[in-house]
Simulated scan of single mutants.
Amino acid sequence: MALELINDKEVWDAFVDTSPHGLLFHKWDYTTITAQHTGYRLLPYGVYKGEELVCLAPLYFKSTHGIKTLFSPPPMQAVIPYQGLIPAKEFDTLKLSKREAIMDLIAGDLSAEIDAISPHYFSLTLVPGLADIRQFLWRGYTPKVRYTYIIDLSQPAEAIWGGFHSKLRGKIRKAEEAGMNLVRSRDISELYASITERFSQPEMNIPMISRAYFEDLFRAYPDHLAAYYLYDREGALTAAVATQEYRRFLFWMGAPRIESGYAGNEYLQWLLIRHAKACGYPIFENIGANTPNLNFFKSQFCQGLGIYVEVCRKDMVGTLAEWAYSSIVNKPWLKRKVVPYID
């Protein structure tokens, strides 16, 4: 059998570190902390070709009231947009025929394991840059396309600035003249308080897990996760975000707009774009391109869209469970009674 569970953190992380598709979401502590706080069982699979490890696939399993689900990543409360497969470091340099053969091996072995687990609902969302899902389509999986906002940081800063919406540039200039102070911190208290208020609103249909989850992640990756706070001259908070800084600069979680006389969110994002470029990151990514009410704000900054794909499969039970959640349990008035948003 070419598919095995890997329980060696060093082997896992070394593979992620060398793969060009490996992100912080894939790292061993990140996956185990996520499983712990979301209530899923982590299945850290490795796909082998002979003795050679050619791919990692962290999957998360849960059985609730007899309904079995298998995800990568787990649903939205983990704030992971994509995870899925991590091919080996040389994968992108191989000839197309060899890449196709490896993807056939990966899809075949994973499909056999998925059939053995027999989940009612399965979803695998791949990172941007892994778009060849033909081997999964030929095995009956359903594709879905997702998007993310990206900025190419190899451009001169002037080109990035010139790509902004003209009204956005005016707001940023005004905020810059006001003398804002940017602070990088490992303390998520103010950020979490702001996000708590946002997700506790009755109209929000996304449950949020505990503060302890984010605290555990920040402890595990102090060099790669950060909270940024923007204060005005009087010391009042005007904007707050969390970032991931590993391989790419990811604008990860943002607090809702804080009422002030200046465009704090806009100015904070510009400062972080400049910071990411100065640190040598190739890409600045702002997740959230699949949320219509955020699109105009985010697209003011970005000149491009990245694409990532999901493959999924569900049987009649999974379809019914999905409908029940979206149509009944997911109603805001009911969810506030049955879903523990936050501590």
Rank of each mutant, 00 (worst) to 15 (best):
I67F: 01
D17G: 10
K171Q: 13
M204K: 12
S299R: 15
W138H: 11
V11G: 08
E203I: 03
Y192I: 04
F301G: 11
K27D: 04
K62V: 02
H65N: 10
G129R: 09
W333L: 03
L320G: 00
Y48C: 08
T31W: 02
S111Y: 09
T125W: 03
S200H: 08
I342T: 15
K68D: 02
W252K: 12
L230W: 05
P202Y: 04
V311C: 11
G46Y: 07
I287N: 10
V127P: 02
R139T: 13
P81C: 08
G306N: 08
P87G: 06
R313E: 05
P207T: 14
D104F: 08
I342D: 06
G108R: 08
S19Y: 05
K335L: 14
S123D: 11
I307W: 05
S111G: 11
M103P: 05
H21P: 01
H224S: 12
R198S: 05
G179M: 02
S63K: 05
G288T: 12
L56F: 07
Q155N: 09
R198A: 08
K144Y: 09
K335Q: 15
L137F: 13
Y281L: 07
R313W: 12
N205H: 07
K337G: 07
S210C: 13
G129V: 13
E4G: 09
K68R: 09
G84E: 01
S118I: 13
K27W: 04
S63G: 00
R257P: 12
K9T: 07
Q135M: 08
Q303H: 15
V54L: 10
L3P: 13
A227T: 15
F15N: 00
V338D: 01
Y221M: 11
I258F: 05
T93S: 13
Y341I: 15
E100K: 11
T38A: 05
L217Q: 14
Q77M: 10
A116V: 11
H21T: 01
W333E: 12
S327Y: 00
L43V: 10
S185T: 09
A255Q: 08
L130Q: 12
H224C: 05
D343G: 14
P256H: 03
G50F: 06
I206N: 07
A175C: 07
A220D: 02
S327D: 00
E266G: 13
M204L: 08
A324R: 00
A324N: 00
V317Q: 01
A107C: 10
I150M: 11
L96M: 11
P73H: 09
D17R: 09
L225S: 10
T38F: 01
L56K: 00
Y60W: 03
L85P: 02
W161E: 09
Y228L: 11
E190I: 04
D109L: 12
Y231A: 04
R139H: 07
D132N: 14
Y262I: 15
D223R: 14
Y149S: 13
P119H: 07
A157T: 13
I102Y: 14
V127E: 00
Y262N: 13
Y213S: 09
G280R: 04
V311D: 13
L153V: 06
A324Y: 00
Y60E: 02
